[in-house]
Amino acid sequence: MGKVFDPVLIIEFIPTLIKYLGITLEILVYSTMLGTLIGIVAAIPKLFHIPVLKQMITLYISFIRGTPILIQLFLVYYGLPAILMLWNIDITRMDALYFVIITYSLSNGAIFAEIFRGAISAIDYGQTEAAYSIGMTRFQSFSRIIFPQSIRIAFPNISNSIIGSLKDTSLAFTIGVMDMMGRGETLIASTAHALEVYISLAIVYYIVVVILEKVFKISERYLNRYQPNETATI
């Protein structure tokens, strides 16, 4: 500390920090896309009860849900190079950003897998029976009847976890990635105005989250357009 609190600096820091918002969003977008892929692949063995694979997926999901993202980040950062070294592939000089994206994809994948599985099993079995009875194949009933309905159910959870992982990206700086938080840390090192930097960071994160929430709310309304209005209690 030692320096006087200067509210003007809060405004002055924001443009510097916003330049690095791109990296934060890059981590978010790539990890969400890869996470969705992993999630779909991981949900299949649990839905169709494929032996062995199902147990492995359960273990994977349980591990991801059972350990902090920070520990996962360190495990990937130190562990992945060690594993790939067995095949003589050297990735120790790879940009830390890729390790962050890999970690967040794996973490999102486990969470998405659970969300997808929950959403698909929430669809009434009568829907499948009805689809079969009008002569649809198994694939058709899944892609035309079950899947579109489950997206609607999964969407609120997915949007929540995307917002959650945006906030988790703020931990990427611990392995030396220059995202918004990382830039904030260097600003603190150079100006010694820690509180001001953190306030402006909080403002930027808050604005991004508010925008994301608005976008998700509109998309949710679009997905629910055929749903009857439910009355809320209290």
Partner: peptide
């Protein structure tokens, strides 16, 4: 609720850690 759900927990720790002593 909106502010605390909209910013990372690390931000809250840092804000309190630097803000309260001030």
């Amino acid at each position: 609720v909106s502010f605390f759900r909209g910013t990372p927990a690390i931000m809250h720790i840092m804000l309190i850690y630097f803000g309260i002593p001030l």
